[in-house]
Design a binder for these strands. Sequence first.
DNA 1: TCAAAAGTGTTGATACTACACCCATGG
DNA 2: CCATGGGTGTAGTATCAACACTTTTGA
Lengths: 236, 236
Amino acid sequence: MSRFADFPNPTLAVDIVALSVADTRLHCLLLRRDDAALVGGDWAFPGAVVHHGKPVEEAVARAAQIKAGLGALHLEQLATYGDPARDPRGHVVSVAWMAIAPHALLLDKVTANPDLCLAPVIVDWPGETGGPAQALGADGQPLRLAFDHAAILGDAVKRLRGKIDYSPIGFGFVPPRFTLRAVQEVHEAILGRPLTKPAFRRKLLDRHPLHPTGTLETGGAFRPAELYERDPAQEM
Amino acid sequence: MSRFADFPNPTLAVDIVALSVADTRLHCLLLRRDDAALVGGDWAFPGAVVHHGKPVEEAVARAAQIKAGLGALHLEQLATYGDPARDPRGHVVSVAWMAIAPHALLLDKVTANPDLCLAPVIVDWPGETGGPAQALGADGQPLRLAFDHAAILGDAVKRLRGKIDYSPIGFGFVPPRFTLRAVQEVHEAILGRPLTKPAFRRKLLDRHPLHPTGTLETGGAFRPAELYERDPAQEM
DNA sequence: TCAAAAGTGTTGATACTACACCCATGG
DNA sequence: CCATGGGTGTAGTATCAACACTTTTGA
């Protein structure tokens, strides 16, 4: 390490793109910035600096748990963003991570912390083209995101769209017991288009080992749907 | 940046996984290490340290061009590896990049630099399971790779296998004018299994805008194949 | 004219979509 | 018994893999 100390080093950080689905729409967790004028936006993803000698995952845990209050959830590395101009305060290279959680879990943290918000996510581009994404405020207007976080958000959506079909990642958005309709809403929110119910049900049931629990949804009007759960041996 | 200078920082570096296909087998470019005892292996991917204020891509260019002599080729970020123990000399977080090139291009660099080699790549795991990969020496025995480079190599192959079907990335392994058979060999090398010719031809021609050039392959015995080229407007 | 590889046509199986339909429940 | 969403059956279509076949060249 003596050899490396000679080089002037960029700072290394992580940013957490925490996502959930509600009302057939993707939402992301954002943290209010005091220094909006300095960092070029009012809102940003929760982040943390990587410390020397500690795993990158330690910074991820710090950003996700302490700053945003998240517990155990699905975490996946997205990409690393290294433009020297991305942070006006200095050269900060950031490893972006995507966190997937049921909406209620993120909502709890938002109500507990007034500096957090859960903003609906909008993408302009169709399919898997790629590009930046927007987060909407309570008034329906796009929020000003700091740094390159609009681009990171777009990359997160692109990653999700690319793997939602074949991977079990969609189950990260629903509680351990869920209706098939809830999973369908997750897929519709991510893909940004409606799906046909019978086709979706069948694909889901033969692609993933799901068990009907026998218990039914409660609280809804009309016929209650059956609750399913994933095979506990399966991982993301 | 004054705020960030307080934190002790890991060193940030890049590693280049340069890949090509020959003899229906994937090959990777490796650099001989003088310090094999220190870094835990005789061979490693070419790398470079990221300098403060310079884009990460600048380090990629340095690692790819100066150390390995590569020119313009397809580059794609793989992932970032941050285990504090991955480099015995100190905490070095590395952003791994995949470089795709025609085999002849890498072979030229290897013959020009005796510290480089182009090693066949072997994976134990089937399909898209994932896991570490091995690079073979001239004697057919696995080479000792430094750091976590066996895991990085495995991740590179996994990425390739995941996107070779729908993405045009396979064309990065062949020259601008190529036979369809050459592209098929690339796909077979990446997937690790034989493909049927008619199905492959049709899928390739449907999915990508390819133009027959009218000129034929030369130098082969038997019937020469037609040379195709990609639509110049298309990008990776 | 023969061997080997280029390139094409056809068929059978599979997967997916779309539509129609039945079921169960609260009011 | 009616409106509404849960859940299933069926048929048409597009996709894909395997096989057989024809074509073209060098020796």
